[in-house]
């Protein structure tokens, strides 16, 4: 192991890493998943290793960082920061590889619960409520985009900083209350707004055909119950495609 050094990451390096994080899944594939992307994002920091771009340390570190890796794309920022720090601190290759492997599972599961199953649906249903209440197209878009991106951008910046600051001790950051309890509160908020959105949308779309609202609601409830019951065997979008194809056939073909 080389001598341990604590370095402040130069602003330009940090900015380059953050910018690259937006393309962390640019070459995502079934072989090494986002492995190349992690190396791509950590690469500006690796240039600070002894010998720079032409150094052996740089090439060895980059080779380690492009191996198989999987994580939620936004929380990959934590991994990139922590792995860059570990490399610059001169941790042993075996230690870094074990650490890298250990990061995959938690960053994937926490990110999926926090973002894909929490934050994204919350922002989505909030924009649907705005639309159902009569918001203009631009307002509806801004509600969704501003709220969602404040969250995802903040998470990436925080992730890179905490990863860099904590290095190999970053596991404690995953115990942050926002990551542990956040998904539950966000899911609850999404549940309230989701429930609110559906009847409002029915009225928004059928406001000129009010007699159809009751029938449409009953039909939606029956179909939803069927979809819940047949979970894993039938998807709503496929059922909709079948229903619309039948409707088109009935409506267009002269019987």
């Amino acid at each position: 192991m080389t001598e341990k050094r604590i370095q402040a990451l130069p602003f330009r390096t940090r900015a380059a890493m953050l910018a690259r994080l937006f393309a962390v899944q640019g070459s995502w594939n079934y072989e090494i998943l986002m492995g190349t992307g992690i190396g791509f994002c950590a690469e500006p920091a690796l240039r600070l290793l002894p010998g720079g771009l032409q150094g052996v340390a740089y090439r060895e570190a980059l080779a380690r960082q492009v191996q198989y890796f999987n994580s939620h794309p936004y929380l990959a920022a934590i991994a990139v920061g922590a792995l860059a720090r570990a490399e610059l601190d001169g941790e042993s290759p075996a230690h870094i590889e074990r650490f890298r492997t250990a990061l995959c599972g938690p960053l994937g599961s926490v990110g999926d619960r926090l973002i894909w199953a929490g934050w994204l649906p919350l922002c989505s249903v909030l924009s649907l409520v705005a639309f159902a209440l009569g918001a203009a197209p631009l307002t509806t878009l801004l509600v969704f985009l501003m709220l969602y991106n404040v969250g995802q951008l903040g998470l990436r910046i925080w992730g890179l900083n905490v990863g860099w600051t904590q290095g190999m001790r970053v596991a404690s950051a995953l115990g942050h209350p926002a990551l542990r309890q956040g998904p539950i509160h966000i899911t609850r908020a999404a549940a309230v707004l989701g429930g609110l959105a559906l009847p409002l949308l029915l009225h928004r779309f059928l406001e000129e055909s009010r007699p159809l609202i009751g029938l449409t609601t009953v039909a939606a409830l029956i179909v939803a119950a069927g979809l819940v019951k047949l979970h894993g065997r039938l998807e709503g979008s496929r059922l909709a495609l079948l229903g619309l194809a039948l409707l088109a056939g009935y409506s267009v073909i002269p019987w």
Partner: peptide
């Protein structure tokens, strides 16, 4: 009636998805 059918399918899909998703909390 055409729009009501599309709407019923979309609302049912989202409702069922929400019901499953909200099981987690």
């Amino acid at each position: 009636r055409s729009e009501a059918l599309v709407l019923a399918l979309a609302v049912a899909t989202a409702g069922a998805a929400g019901w499953r998703l909200f099981h987690a909390a």
